[in-house]
Amino acid sequence: MSPVNVKEGDGPVILGLPHAGTFVPPEVAQALNERGRALADTDWHVDQLYDGLLPGATYVRANFHRYVIDANRDPAGVSLYPGQNTTTLVPLTDFDGEPIWNQPPSTQDIAAQQAAFHSAYHAALAEQIARVKARHGVAILFDCHSIRSRIPFLFDGVLPDLNIGTNGGLTCAALVQDAVWQACEGSEFSAVLNGRFKGGWTTRHYGQPEAHVHAIQLELAQSTYLTAEEPPWSYDSDKALKLRGLLRDILISLADLAPSLNTNPKGTS
């Protein structure tokens, strides 16, 4: 299986999907324990949720699971959230803080998995950003994520439905952040801007507004589109219909912003 699927579009928006994949190489699966092999921390069906929402969008999807290696973590192993519970480049625990390995990966294992999977995903993503920017003068990376709404190991209480991350406004123009925030804030869903999730390594690494590359992450509570946040992690078409309408509006608004961002990378009025 290819580590990455790419669907090229002719528009200015790129959808990144680093955590929707479930492929685990046999040698990695053998080293995981029963809890790890359950793959509970998948961004379940998030690719289905976004499918077909924006004509002309480019899709870059990692096919491998985050337990193999996390495509949204710094390859140098630097924590995204110093001082807070989180998972690492190759997680040793799941989101509940429970061990997922019978035989944890060695330094050599991690290096091999990084070369085969993490590097492949980011090579594909960087190539698409360069292609889209060459065509439009600007590229807008929308990083698509989802997570269970209750995970005490990672955060207190219940996560808002929509969690927008721009690393405090550093990864995109104000126009981009405002467009997404206003749509979310005005919806029927609860929303927060730069709360517990401020944008992962992908958003922070590629988001360079001064260079006409804008990146923004949306972390969805899985309660917004799954029947239940537990196995078998079923997609709920009725719930998803409402959410897909909002996501479609957001993505269209971002595509419409691209010409103004091309002339004004800061995106201020």
Rank of each mutant, 00 (worst) to 15 (best):
M1F: 13
S2M: 13
S2K: 09
E8N: 11
L15Y: 03
L17W: 03
V24A: 02
P25F: 04
L39K: 12
A40H: 14
W44Q: 11
H45I: 04
H45T: 07
Y50D: 08
L53G: 04
G56C: 11
N63A: 10
H65E: 05
R66D: 11
I69D: 00
D70G: 08
P75E: 03
P82N: 09
N85I: 08
T87I: 12
T88N: 14
P99I: 09
N102F: 04
P104R: 14
A112H: 02
A116H: 07
A120I: 05
H122G: 09
H122T: 12
L125A: 10
I129L: 14
I129D: 08
K133M: 01
R135V: 12
L141P: 06
F142C: 12
I147E: 06
I147N: 06
R150A: 07
I151Q: 12
D156I: 00
L159C: 08
L159E: 01
I164M: 07
T166P: 01
G169S: 11
A174N: 10
V176L: 01
D178S: 14
V180P: 01
V180D: 00
C184S: 04
E188Q: 13
E188D: 12
V192W: 04
R196Q: 00
K198L: 00
G199D: 04
T202P: 03
R204T: 08
R204Q: 11
P209G: 12
H212F: 08
H214F: 02
E219Q: 11
S234A: 14
S237F: 14
K239D: 08
R248L: 01
I250D: 03
I250N: 03
I250W: 03
L251T: 04
L254E: 02
K266I: 09
G267T: 03
